[in-house]
Simulated scan of single mutants.
Amino acid sequence: MGIVLLDSSWVAFDTWDGATAWGPKEKQPYPYHTGKQVNYNDDSLYCEIDSYCNGEEFETVDGYNKVRLQVVYFYRSARSGPLGGIAFNADTIGWVCRFYDSHGGQSVSKAQADSIIKAWGIEE
């Protein structure tokens, strides 16, 4: 399906009701795959979110943010869980990708997300 698998260099760093998040064991230089979050609701898999960052910063009224990319795969309707806003509360099942920079969050296709990851030099 193209969902990124994690190797032994990753550790679970946070677990809460309905989700677990992983990150690299050791700090990585930019750009890198910064995290994975798996959400499960009602004891079934809801979505996986892979986050990437290239290290570039931009200023907002709230301070500085980093350019980042989120690649999300919904196993069931995005509306059926708490992260439906990522998919604009659509009945989406499958890929939703969002690129965040000084222009805000923009939807990009899975092919565009893959191209961004490749352009940043991140190996998958």
Rank of each mutant, 00 (worst) to 15 (best):
L5V: 07
L6R: 10
D7N: 13
D7I: 08
V11T: 05
D14P: 01
T15H: 07
W16C: 08
D17G: 15
D17F: 06
G18V: 09
T20Q: 02
G23A: 07
K25A: 10
K25C: 09
P31G: 06
Y32Q: 04
K36I: 09
D42G: 09
D50H: 06
Y52K: 00
C53Y: 02
N54R: 12
N54M: 08
G55A: 03
G55R: 05
E56N: 12
E57C: 06
E59N: 10
G63V: 11
G63R: 04
G63D: 02
Y64S: 12
N65W: 14
K66W: 14
L69E: 06
Y73T: 04
Y75C: 00
Y75M: 00
Y75I: 02
S80V: 07
G84L: 02
G85P: 01
I86A: 10
A87F: 13
F88E: 13
D91V: 14
T92C: 03
T92R: 10
I93Y: 15
G94Y: 13
G94C: 12
F99I: 06
Y100M: 03
Y100H: 10
Y100L: 08
D101K: 05
D101N: 14
S102E: 08
H103E: 13
S107N: 12
V108Q: 09
S109F: 09
Q112R: 15
A113W: 04
D114G: 12
S115K: 13
I116K: 08
I116R: 07
K118M: 11
K118W: 12
W120F: 03
W120H: 05
E123N: 09
